[in-house]
Computed example of a mutant assay.
Amino acid sequence: MLDRHDRAARRARLRLIGIGVVTGAVVAAGGVALLHGLDDGDDPKPNAAPTATATASPGPTSSPSPSATRTLTPNTAKPAHLPKPAGQKDGASIGFPRYGYGPMAAAVYHLDELSVLDDDMVRRQLTVITAKGSEDSIDKAVSEVRKLREQVGLPPSGGTPAGMTITTTVDAAQAWALNSDGSVITVWMHYSRTATLPKGGPDDSPLRNQLANMILQWEDGDWKITTDPKWTAKKGDPMPYNPDSPASAKDGWLVVIRD
């Protein structure tokens, strides 16, 4: 028989998997949002950031090589090797490179690390990685996590149920600059999420084919999450990700690998 703690953990898992919750509060506060429910993306996509290159020009030979003529898809194009952060502070990775795949790496690490059910942890993480001017989003994040906790039968404040693990795996991403100097980047991520219980074994109903967006601003030597409406209104809207689709590669989707 499950004890009270295990029952709360099971309800939390079912809630997370059943309705597709993604870092509850982060939808409003941390700059991460599910594709469903976003505002329309009718504006043209902004300038591509240096991280979004998915094709290459053929060399100056009379006949292109097989690799040059091959139709590029995310699976056949060169993957994006994401640099490691320089360190961690209060549960959040910090110290990502300014250029190259730095902003994409920051988004991927933050999506993976942000707590779903621990309100205190979410506050500490977002305090570290939130840009100036977006601090009010932190309180909104904490409030949303507390609401989620109550919905799954947990006390409003507290940590993740003991033994419960939630794992996020980003397999592809694309990044675009929202301003002329590339200091504000919108990153879209395609990912899956699994949750396991203390005694429940592997997840038999994981989230698949999820999309999340994060807008990052270069500030004080690192990439910080911004929810400034000036930038969120320009975040763009990617086409659906398909690892075997030339259209996905042309749109900027890249397979991501953590170095």
Rank of each mutant, 00 (worst) to 15 (best):
M1S: 10
A8I: 07
R10C: 08
R10W: 04
R11W: 05
R13Y: 02
L14V: 06
I17Y: 03
G24D: 00
V27G: 00
A29Q: 03
A29Y: 07
L35Q: 11
G37A: 11
L38H: 08
D39G: 13
D39S: 12
D40N: 13
D40M: 10
G41W: 12
A49N: 12
T51P: 09
P58M: 10
G59P: 00
T61W: 06
P64S: 11
R70K: 03
L72F: 13
A77T: 14
A80W: 13
H81E: 00
G87T: 03
Q88K: 14
D90L: 14
G91T: 03
G91V: 06
G95L: 02
F96M: 06
Y99N: 15
Y101P: 01
G102F: 06
P103G: 10
A105S: 01
A106N: 03
A106L: 02
H110S: 04
H110A: 05
V116I: 07
L117V: 01
D119S: 15
R123A: 14
S134E: 13
E135K: 08
E135L: 09
V142L: 04
E144A: 13
R146S: 11
Q151W: 06
G153L: 13
G153E: 06
G159A: 08
T160Y: 12
M164F: 11
T165G: 04
T168D: 02
T169I: 14
A172Q: 09
A175S: 15
S183D: 10
V184K: 05
R193A: 11
T194Y: 12
L197Q: 05
G201I: 09
P202L: 14
D204S: 15
M214L: 09
L216Y: 06
E219F: 00
D220T: 05
K224L: 02
T226H: 08
T227I: 05
T227V: 09
P229F: 09
K234A: 04
K235M: 13
Y241G: 02
Y241F: 13
N242V: 11
D244C: 05
K250A: 15
K250V: 15
D251T: 12
G252M: 04
